[in-house]
Design a protein around this nucleic acid. Sequence first.
DNA 1: ATACCGACCTGTCAGC
DNA 2: TGCTGACAGGTCGGTA
Length: 281
Amino acid sequence: MPELPEVETIVRGLDKRVSGDTIDSVWIGSRKQPLKSPAAKIATTLEGKKIVRVHRAGKHIVLDLEAGDGRKRVRRAGSLSQSNAQWIVHLGMTGRLMVCDPAAEIVKHTHLIAKLGSGRELRFVDPRMFGKLSVHSSGFDPGGVEPLEVSEERFRALFRGRKTPIKSALLNQKLLRGVGNIYADESLFRAGIRPRRRAASLSKGDLHRLYGAVQDVLREAIAKGGSSISDYVDADGEEGFFQLEHRVYGREGEQCLVCRTMVKRLVLVGRSSHYCPKCQK
DNA sequence: ATACCGACCTGTCAGC
DNA sequence: TGCTGACAGGTCGGTA
């Protein structure tokens, strides 16, 4: 589901709402697919911890945890008991992490419920189960660079000598982290570059435009609360509005907003790629 | 070392 | 009213 702007939106909402709260108890469903760490380890690591901060690393949600207020804490085998554990949530395609009232209906595909000291609940729901839950001792690093923090020099260096299509390179989280299918297509359109162009074939000028386009698209999308296509909502259940600003994504067969040429779709790396054959070279 | 391609899942929607 | 197939915001691991 979510790419960098959606995750950023969720994280901002969560940080505002649950930072300072504690996790009193954790329920984990029976499906193992969404668990990257063993269920018992996740539960014992989260229980009794205070949520210090919620932030983002690429498409990962990172909840910084700290030992709670000291009452009746028991050290259990296999848990990450040191004060600086991190809870990592990747939403995959359809994952949602939401703050809920305990009275709210427990929807199908709910895989984890964390009861908070404030009386609310943090719930992880994911129908397709491509999302992943895990715990780390601290210093979680998914690799790759943050597109909104990287310098233009380093951005250019990421693609040097790569024969892969530029679209594939943009989707590679080990290079740039956080860009997914929608924002890759939108960035390439704005930069006037076709998705199939070999990364190494891009000129300095191409890369300069792409660098600017990626940052503009991501910043604008964050400002609009992300893109809601079918079911994306943020931590408060609010939809984003950037889907209204998409210029090529999902517009196959429609006219290019710039030149009125018909927008085309091709499949690259198993993913749909949308582009304007006239505006993108 | 790099690059495709299917696999992992469920849900929805279009077409027959 | 079904049934079938294509497609969906993402990643991983095997193979070429």
